[in-house]
């Protein structure tokens, strides 16, 4: 089964969704991400979706669910790069991305995560450099 690769960069995990997601792939991503947050102690998850042509309620629920699980594991989720047409459609659809920070692009998304790491850095510093993967 195909899986979406997860990259670790400092205290952040980065995922780029470039395929048309269907159920199994979405469930696998959620599981892989939560396992990787637990293993690496990542403080942020950046999900880049500029390749997604639509976000329907299925994908929206997946993003909300990833954010909720990540939050319980003490990591913040930022969704970056949503296309303008997708944003317009989401609003009309009535989908609220509860608990998800959004950023215009990867650069701004990383800035959000980095500032969180910097703010809370003191107590967690040791964890970031340890690569257990």
């Amino acid at each position: 089964m195909d899986r979406i690769p997860i990259l670790k960069l400092g205290g952040a995990l980065i995922v780029t969704i470039q395929v048309d997601m269907q159920d199994r792939l979405a469930i696998a991503l959620e599981e892989d991400l939560s396992a990787m947050i637990a293993r690496t102690g990542a403080r942020g998850v950046l999900i880049e979706i500029s390749a997604l042509e639509i976000v329907d309620s299925f994908i929206g629920r997946m993003l909300v669910s990833i954010a909720a699980v990540s939050r319980v594991l003490d990591a913040e989720t930022v969704v970056a790069g949503m296309r303008p047409a997708v944003a317009i459609t989401l609003v009309e659809l009535g989908l609220e991305l509860t608990g998800i920070r959004t950023a215009l692009n990867v650069e701004r998304g990383m800035a959000i995560i980095q500032s969180r790491i910097a703010e809370e850095g003191e107590g967690h510093g040791g964890d970031w450099d340890r690569d257990e993967s």
Binding site: E53, I54, D56, R83, P84, A85, V86
Partner: peptide
């Protein structure tokens, strides 16, 4: 593009 996106999303739902 926006109308395409809306209708494809409706179809997906």
């Amino acid at each position: 593009l926006v109308d395409q996106t809306k209708f494809v999303t409706a179809a997906s739902e």
